[in-house]
Amino acid sequence: MNSLYMPKDSLIHSLDPRTKMLFVVFVVASSFILNDPALQLVFLVALFPLVVMAKVVKPYLISIQFLLLFAVLIMTVHGIYNPIGVTPVFEIFGGLTFKYESMVYASVMSFRILVIGTAAVLFVMTTHPSDMASALVKWKVPHSFAFILLSTFQIIPIIAREAKIVMEAQQARCLDVKGSLIQRVKNLVPMFAPLFIITFMKVHQLSYVLECRAFSRKGEKTSLRETKIGSLDYTFLLGMLGFLAFEIYLKLFMMGSLQLTTDALLTYSLFGTWIVFGFMIIKFVVKQFQGKIGGAN
């Protein structure tokens, strides 16, 4: 796998990268405009059909797990300890009480992370890195800058692969990677020193390769992968604009009368994240266990 990009044939994939970039901006803006847990939850659910349309449900769920970890942490810790909370909602053992205001705050924050994360994952998974670079160039971003962005995307999997080899190579030198915490911190040196040197060498090599292929030549450059904004993009952009207008209207004129956020909703979403998190832990433990038995760790 060269990057996070998932080559699939879908409507979302065929959108112009610029449209998708605007989409990410739109989602970020919306997540700040809709700073109400209920609305954000609706928004999050509304984004899911796009993920389905892009045919990346499984990889999406895998990558969103990490963000969910943050969400659980924020919702639990903030919900109990954030000092802005005054109205108790419910108490768990030991006098730890979830309070309404802090739960609202925590939910807004964690849903925002999930919403923005979803849009970002959707963008990265459906956009070929080269397309993104050529789209940026069309926006008059300097070619070399677009390339820096592109190569950063592409070098991450390379570094990950090298990191794995270095780890094995150091284990072959009797390094115990499963030691105590202090031992593990010490192990960072034999891990990162070779990795750093190798990455440096690779980047150095890359610069030579680029020069050999006339990278720094002045003047107009053409691109192998052309991107074009078509009717689909306009439809999509119009849709986004409509939504944005609706959100602003909602925010300005309806917020007073609309009270979607209730204790129940907050509690359920907290429990929801806990349950999903619980499943993740169970899955992880089962996997570890299988690894021990089957030896496939």
């Binding site: 009797c174 990677v177 034999p190 070779p194 040197i197």
Partner: peptide, 24 residues
């Protein structure tokens, strides 16, 4: 299956193809 890599590595030395992965 039951031994640590670090212990096995004291019996079986493995020289990687690229020394840059190993020396630092």
């Amino acid at each position: 299956k039951k031994e640590r890599i670090s212990k096995l590595s004291s019996r079986v030395g493995y020289v990687f193809q690229n020394p840059n992965h190993q020396t630092f």
